[in-house]
């Protein structure tokens, strides 16, 4: 790999890229072993697979998320055994239905491959919890609940994580949550709440 001359140019030019991507498996979904296996095993749960910047994203139906991830973890030829990350994205401005995406980043320690599994769901739909599969999902799901209000079904202890326990203003990472919150707060030493200024950086 080091023999190839490194151009330093845009990545579309030939040459090895720094963020080299063999670690996400084949770039064509049809050739990817994990995608193939999931398509065979869960034909009704599979939605699609997208490749961007050589990263493979597998999209599945929400109710089957835990089964799919459990299968990816346990299958001896796949073994995505490390839960790198679990988070959610509020797609409010990008599409209508479903509103949220839950994003699970998996990594296989023996095979050195990453895979992203996504499932879409609407507000209030219970998402199967990953805690029975990965202990490490515990706090990540609590954080996702805290920030997005996602209810994880089967989570042993779904409390707020980063916000106070008595926080009653909703879930701040939702796109309809204003940057400075719903309420006006009076700063110490002032009589009236500070005026709300319009953010300089409005989304176009």
């Amino acid at each position: 790999m080091a023999e190839e001359e490194h151009t330093g140019g845009p990545a579309d030019s030939p040459g090895r890229r720094i963020w080299d991507t063999g670690y996400w498996g084949p770039t064509v979904p049809e050739e990817h072993p994990a995608i193939q296996a999931v398509r065979e095993k869960f034909p009704e749960a599979y939605v699609d697979a997208v490749n961007f910047r050589d990263e493979m994203t597998l999209r599945v139906e929400r109710p089957a998320l835990r089964e799919v991830v459990g299968y990816l973890r346990d299958d001896p030829s796949l073994r995505y055994n490390l839960l790198s990350d679990l988070t959610a994205v509020d797609m409010l401005r990008l599409r209508d239905n479903p509103r949220f995406d839950v994003v699970v980043q998996l990594y296989s320690i023996p095979r050195r491959q990453r895979l992203r599994v996504k499932a879409g769901f609407n507000d209030g739909d219970p998402v199967p919890s990953m805690v029975p599969l990965f202990q490490g999902a515990n706090w990540l799901e609590r954080e996702a609940y805290d920030m997005f209000g996602i209810v994880f079904e089967g989570h042993p202890d779904l409390r707020r994580m980063l916000l106070p326990d008595d926080w009653d203003e909703g879930h701040p990472l939702r796109k309809d949550y204003p940057l400075r919150g719903y309420r006006e707060y009076v700063q110490p030493g002032f009589e009236n709440p500070a005026p709300r200024v319009r953010s300089r950086f409005r989304r176009p």
């Binding site: 990350d85 401005r93 980043q105």
Partner: peptide, 30 residues
């Protein structure tokens, strides 16, 4: 598009998950 970039931070795997909607402001930073 969306990317996940992991690096080896001194404390472990530091991952940045970015979702872009094609505007100059990231749609989601994780």
């Amino acid at each position: 598009g969306e990317v996940y970039q992991a690096i080896e931070h001194s404390k472990g795997e530091l991952g940045y998950y970015l979702v872009s909607d094609g505007t100059p402001i990231p749609y989601r930073v994780r």
